[in-house]
Amino acid sequence: MNFKYWAFISYSHTDESIGKRVHKYLEKLPLSKRKHGVKKLFPIFRDKDELPTSSDLGSQLNSALLDSKYLLVICTPTSAKSKWVNEEIRKFSELGRASRIIAFIPKDVSPMEEIYTPEMAKIISSGDLEHRITWSKGGLRTPVDLLAATICGTPLSGMRRYQSFRRLRKAVIWMMVPFITAIALFLMPTFSTLLFSHKIQTDDAFSQVVKEDYAKNAAKMADSEEFKKASKDMTKIMGAMFDAAENQRKKLNEPLDRRLSMNSPTPSPDSNQGGESVYSDKHTIRPESVHSNLASAQLRGLDVVISKAREILEAYKTTNDQNAKLQLQEHLAMMLYSLKLMPVEQATTQQKKDIKEIVDKIHEINPALSSGF
């Protein structure tokens, strides 16, 4: 039969301090699963409230008695006079478990005093009381070991050896703590220095590896045909932009009289018979023609950027190499930077549509590339 409680502690509430100590020691005593079949004797039932004045123990106590493997009775002169302790002994005996009643006699109890209830005295006289443990002197260690051995059904000698070994091991560990602490404090500066120097060496080695790897990748990318082609395209784009900007600068910095003379009619070497000069403007440089040439160069530059961006997007779509994708993302970033430098607002409707399509695709690849565009 499986029991909910290992034991039921029966005591007079005048002896509550003894009941608490025995309860605490038993539940916290470490055991061996291999030797004793259990790691701890938990739980153990102890009634913490005063019993009612009626003659019935109550459903809770009756249920606890039924679910307990042993009945541990703390035998004192006050418990001998308690009708509730006597009633608990009687109920447990009626369950056919008189042989599992343990009489625990605390120290400082006079042998001349009556310490057994009528029901306990009846069990003793019939010879059914098999377990009587006396706490004669010292602490609770020895009697609790004996109680645990009785409840577990193991020999007392094995329990004593196990508990002695466990306590000795614990004492040795506590004795070693100051020694280990002193050694750790003594060696801490040395270990700190070694760890710090190792960290510096590791960081230096990692930095060197990163630098070498970066240089290797940069050299590999510079030798690739894609990079060379992209560099040439970017050179063409920037050349067209610089040419347009230089023409605009020259036009704006021309002296006013020079622009006026350029806009005035030029005498033709031919004259009519009446002596009137014939004027021709075929060599006249007009401001609107300068603006027209600049706009034309800018639109051509936009076409080059759009075409190159489409090529890079197509290459990004078809490749599965992550390093190649990272390099293509760098090229796309260069394309977007070029578009920012160019007057996109002056682009044609088709060019604006193409630019929007390219920016959307780049945003799908990496939103950080197209931020701020």
Rank of each mutant, 00 (worst) to 15 (best):
R249P: 09
A240P: 03
P267Y: 03
M175I: 06
S79L: 00
S268N: 09
D270T: 13
I237E: 03
P111Q: 14
I44K: 03
S10W: 03
I180E: 01
L302G: 05
I285P: 04
K325S: 07
Y116K: 00
D243W: 03
I101E: 00
G153R: 10
A309E: 04
S371L: 08
R286Y: 06
D303F: 01
D243S: 13
G239S: 15
S296E: 07
T53A: 14
I200Q: 01
F179H: 06
N62Y: 07
A295R: 07
L341W: 10
K236G: 08
G153I: 12
D128C: 02
T117L: 09
T348G: 01
L326G: 09
A103F: 05
A184T: 05
I183D: 00
M342K: 05
Q329R: 09
E330I: 14
K308H: 15
K282V: 13
A240G: 15
K361E: 13
K308C: 07
W6T: 03
E311N: 11
R97L: 07
G37Y: 12
P343I: 02
L328I: 03
W174L: 12
G19H: 00
I101L: 08
S93C: 11
K250R: 15
P367H: 03
S99I: 07
A324K: 12
L294R: 11
D204Q: 09
T284D: 00
W6H: 01
L185P: 02
G158D: 15
D257G: 06
K317I: 03
T202P: 01
D213V: 04
R258W: 12
N217C: 02
A230E: 14
A64L: 04
I115D: 01
D203S: 03
L339Y: 01
S338N: 10
K282T: 13
A240Y: 14
A182D: 04
K39Q: 11
E130W: 03
I151M: 02
F373D: 03
G239K: 07
H198Q: 07
L252T: 14
W6V: 04
H198L: 11
V210P: 02
R166D: 14
Q351M: 06
D47N: 09
S68E: 05
H363R: 11
R310D: 14
S10Q: 11
S125G: 09
M335C: 10
N272K: 10
K4L: 11
Y5P: 05
E130D: 01
Q60N: 12
K236N: 15
R160V: 13
H198P: 03
M112R: 15
P155M: 08
N323K: 11
F104G: 04
L66P: 00
N263D: 14
V359S: 04
V172T: 05
K20N: 14
G138H: 08
T154G: 09
I105S: 05
I173H: 08
M188H: 08
R34M: 15
N366H: 00
D281R: 02
P52T: 08
M1R: 13
I285C: 01
R132I: 10
G139H: 06
L302H: 04
A230L: 06
L185D: 01
D15S: 07
V278K: 10
S93Q: 03
K69E: 15
M262Q: 13
F373A: 05
R249H: 13
N320A: 09
K220L: 12
P255I: 02
D145N: 14
E276F: 07
A215M: 13
